[in-house]
């Protein structure tokens, strides 16, 4: 029995196998956003009708910002949920859609076909998406009354998460900030 070979062999292969085993617990597609817990980047965008939305002026009320596109299947899937959410919390939570690399005409057509749950904002040059570190649509950012990102959903939002975070944001007392 050659102990050196045994020890070196096990010393290399065991940790390697352990890490490979650990890897199953992670989804390689999901990257945690470093922005959760940080102030949301402020933006000022026009929607399809030319109305201007300024995030800073919505301070005091929770905001849900959803990056989406018509070619994205999960976006289609979460659409009814966002419709329902926007109706339920009308006047309490702002729902903002930011168009992610898509043609405004297609977005308008989609809104006409399926209904719209909020303004569809045109992100010229994708700069807002970059500021929010969006990997691909859909991604949803939950911004509390103080303008801090409290949570983020990658892929279609689950009803569970939407309800949970919305209630949490609504329960938070408004601090006196401009």
């Amino acid at each position: 029995m050659n102990r050196r070979v045994l020890l070196v062999g096990l010393g290399i292969s065991l940790p390697l196998l352990a890490f490979l085993g650990f890897a199953f617990r992670h989804d390689p597609q999901i990257v945690e956003s470093p922005l959760v817990g940080k102030p949301a980047p402020s933006f000022r965008l026009a929607d399809l009708d030319g109305n201007i939305v300024d995030l800073a002026e919505l301070r005091g009320q929770p905001v849900i910002v959803n990056f989406w596109a018509t070619y994205c299947v999960p976006c289609l899937y979460e659409h009814p949920l966002l419709m329902e959410g926007a109706r339920r919390w009308q006047g309490e939570i702002h729902f903002l859609g930011v168009i992610f690399q898509d043609d405004p005409d297609l977005i308008a057509q989609f809104n006409a076909d399926y209904g719209r749950w909020g303004p569809s904002l045109i992100d010229e040059g994708g700069r807002v998406a970059i500021a929010y570190g969006v990997y691909g649509p859909p991604e949803t950012f939950f911004i509390d009354r103080d303008g801090v990102i409290v949570d983020k959903a990658i892929g279609a939002v689950s009803p569970d998460q939407l309800l949970d975070v919305a209630n949490r944001m609504l329960a938070q007392p408004a601090t006196a900030t401009g």
Binding site: D54, M83, D113
Partner: peptide, 20 residues
Amino acid sequence: ALPFAAPASAQETDTPPKVA
């Protein structure tokens, strides 16, 4: 609300004031 067949309907949710 999930089954996404939900087609266009009149119930357009107007999100409150977009500041101009």
